[in-house]
């Protein structure tokens, strides 16, 4: 019997796609594998060991950078998510209004402007403030991260809000709920998966940032990614792989959770 004609088939596409997936994961998998290498090479396998995880764990610079990364990411994502929720409430499901274009441009600016340009502009601006006030704490980094996290938090929240049934709020209002009660009892519970998704995305984005942090940080304010960038000049050991693997695991868990959260309907 002849093979049925498959209308979807295009010669060579499937092998290319498979190759694409392999190439996408191969480097990451190798990186993870060699983090367990007993030897100090990242190409010669000398047996399984957790020694590089232990050495990373005991490295005080890594410890400090990890704590700093988590502090910044937590504060920045909390700020960005709060701001994004309020902004989404103000800009979704409303009639066109004056100033709309400018506000959207502002919210999306961190997505449009190349990161290096944002980094340079923050370097210049914060240098001015540092000279004026003498303050060199973490808040520069937190605010910088919060700003570029806002569009990432804003998008899933807005999408959730847009997909929400407007009549639910009308029904609540019809059933004697004041605007605040409606928000508390109907809008917020419905919006919650979107808020959580937005917060997680913001957290990942902040945790992974290199460029802006590299430019904005004061001396001794390395986060995990900038610490790793600094290690580049040295001889690379699987310790970097171990740190990478840990960071990778954190990101993947958050991203997969985000994926399933943003998929839940109602």
């Amino acid at each position: 019997m002849a093979k049925p004609f498959d209308i979807r088939k295009q010669t060579g596409f499937t092998p290319l796609a498979i190759l694409c997936f392999v190439l996408l994961y191969l480097p990451i998998i190798l990186l993870v594998v060699y983090s367990f290498n007993a030897g100090s090479s990242i190409a010669l396998w000398e047996g399984f060991s957790l020694r590089w995880y232990a050495s990373a764990w005991e490295n005080e610079a890594v410890q400090a950078a990890t704590i700093r990364s988590v502090v910044i990411a937590s504060a920045a994502s909390a700020l960005a998510t709060t701001a994004a929720v309020l902004a989404a409430l103000a800009t979704t499901r409303v009639k066109p209004w004056r100033g709309q274009g400018a506000v959207f441009a502002l919210i999306n600016q961190p997505l449009m402007v190349p990161e290096i340009v944002t980094a340079v502009s923050l370097l210049i601006f914060f240098a001015m403030i540092k000279v004026q006030t003498g303050y060199t704490g973490l808040w520069y980094l937190i605010l910088a991260h919060a700003a570029f996290c806002i569009p990432f938090a804003y998008m899933p929240i807005r999408a959730r809000l847009q997909g929400m049934d407007l009549t639910l709020e009308q029904a609540a209002s019809d059933l004697y709920a004041t605007p605040w009660q409606t928000f508390r009892r109907i809008t917020l519970p419905q919006l919650f998966p979107g808020i959580l998704a937005g917060a997680m995305l913001a957290f990942v984005i902040s945790l992974d940032d290199v460029v802006i942090t590299e430019f904005v940080k004061s001396a001794g304010q390395d986060t995990l990614p900038t610490y790793m960038l600094g290690q580049l000049r040295r001889n690379i050991t699987p310790e970097v792989n171990a740190i990478s693997t840990a960071l990778l695991a954190a990101s993947i868990i958050l991203v997969v959770a985000f994926f399933f959260l943003s998929r839940t309907r109602k």
């Binding site: 902004a87 340079v120 919060a146």
Partner: peptide, 21 residues
């Protein structure tokens, strides 16, 4: 009022610095 937190953060750490550049 609802937009103000986002706008303040963005003006302080995105749009404003760009103007200074």
């Amino acid at each position: 009022l609802l937009l103000s937190p986002a706008l303040l953060i963005l003006i302080f750490a995105a749009a404003g610095p760009l103007l200074i550049v």
